[in-house]
Design a protein around this nucleic acid. Structure first.
Length: 384
DNA sequence: ATCCCGGGAG
DNA sequence: CTCCCGGGAT
């Protein structure tokens, strides 16, 4: 029993009637298939509902079931994930589909415990999938639910900070509505997203504020206290567009041809192969410590790289096309974009390129690229 | 404990 | 612009 818990049934009734009236109608909420619920929960990790909707619809249209997903190439799955971020999720989803088809005869796990065994499915996702898709009485504690629970139970930030993961889990398990665990979990998360928000909680609009300890406090927004964010690191780098103005040369995932740091620049991060794993990209310098106005000289940077694409161009034809910014994890990247303009025939005749390199459209590549690469390609388009 | 991305709010 | 937000693997 939760300490101080007065009237659990009344709280449940109040929250559920609010949810029936306020619930957003989202594509995965029809609960038509375990498959759809699974895909949605993976996409919703670290990602807002608004961002997920169009990706979810495209994904389900292209990969309508787990068999289709399993026999598709990981490359195509990554391509459909382009722009959504945290690309490891897509690789793990594809890997899990392979396991479900090859090792389980295409049958989905029948419990949260079994779901938890699959790649990419942790405490949150296994609880969400099992409660929504199987009716299992388990909590699904994402950041929204965690905040809601802690506010219900704690009148101070210190109280919330003292609640460990195990304790929170106990509370969450205790409060899940046994008759409708999926609806309950959805309702708690929806309340966190729409009303019990991190920065600007709308306690005046909250259907359950009368059972909430944080609502009685001076500043509910400070419960739970926010963790100190890591210091941001400013980084400069250059990337190289080899393009005819319509198409561009892209490197396959994992390709990191040696491009030395220019003299006078210190390397901020030698190996960034973990970033954007599985995505195609442009040739890049290492990440460099530099003041924002320092210019990287194209001729010097790419002289060792160009022999890899010999037969295309000589170093003299490289120009500066523009620059853009991209924030990723704790890094703030300033990307100087260099360009080699070639004629189309030269680009489509590909024998001289390293294996796996490919030509893609500047606008809709149809290959897996991150948002960073999208921005860089955008510079090529606007500069004509 | 640290590493992975992107969107939205202000 | 800047700041804030968010699960799972290792």
């Amino acid at each position: 029993m939760i300490p101080g818990w007065k009237d659990r049934d009344a709280l449940r009734a109040a929250l559920m009637s609010w949810f029936v009236a306020s619930r957003r109608d989202l594509p995965w909420r029809s609960r038509e298939s375990l498959y759809g619920i699974w895909v949605a929960e993976i996409m919703l990790q670290q990602t807002t509902v608004e961002a997920v909707v169009p990706f979810y619809q495209r994904f389900l249209a292209r990969f309508p079931d787990v068999q289709t997903l399993a026999r598709s190439s990981v490359d195509e799955v990554m391509a459909l994930w382009s722009g959504l971020g945290y690309y490891r999720r897509a690789a793990m989803l594809h890997r899990a589909a392979g396991i479900i088809v090859a090792e389980r005869g295409g049958r989905f796990p029948a419990s949260s415990r079994e779901w938890h065994q699959l790649p990419g499915v942790g405490d949150y996702a296994s609880g969400a999938i099992a409660s929504l898709g199987l009716g299992e009485r388990v909590p699904a504690v994402d950041a929204n639910a965690r905040r809601v629970l802690l506010r219900w139970l704690c009148a101070t930030g210190a109280c919330a900070a003292a609640v460990g993961k195990a304790r929170l889990k106990e509370w969450a398990e205790d409060i899940v509505d046994p008759d409708a665990p999926g609806d309950w979990n959805e309702a708690v998360m929806e309340l966190g997203a729409l009303v019990c928000r991190a920065r600007h909680p709308k306690c005046a609009d909250c259907p359950v504020s009368r059972w909430c300890r944080a609502a009685e406090s001076a500043d509910p927004a400070t419960i739970p206290p926010l963790a100190a964010p890591p210091d941001r690191v400013r980084v400069t780098l250059a990337q190289l567009l080899i393009t005819d103005g319509v198409k561009v040369l892209l490197m396959p995932p994992g390709a990191t041809p040696a491009v030395p740091a220019p003299r006078g620049f210190a390397v901020a991060r030698e190996d960034f192969s973990g970033l954007f794993r599985g995505m195609c990209g442009l040739p890049s310098t290492p990440w460099l410590h530099a003041s924002t106005d320092q210019v990287l000289a194209p001729g010097e940077i790419w002289s060792d790289f160009l022999p890899l694409v010999h037969g295309i161009l000589a170093p003299g034809h490289i120009d500066f096309a523009g620059s853009c910014r991209h924030a990723v994890t704790r890094f703030d990247l300033q990307i100087q974009v260099h360009r080699i303009l070639v004629d189309s025939a030269c680009l489509t005749r590909g024998r001289t390129w390293p294996p796996g390199w490919r030509v893609a459209g500047l606008s809709a590549p149809g290959v897996p690229i991150s948002r960073l690469t999208t921005k860089v390609l955008g510079i090529a388009r606007t500069e004509g």
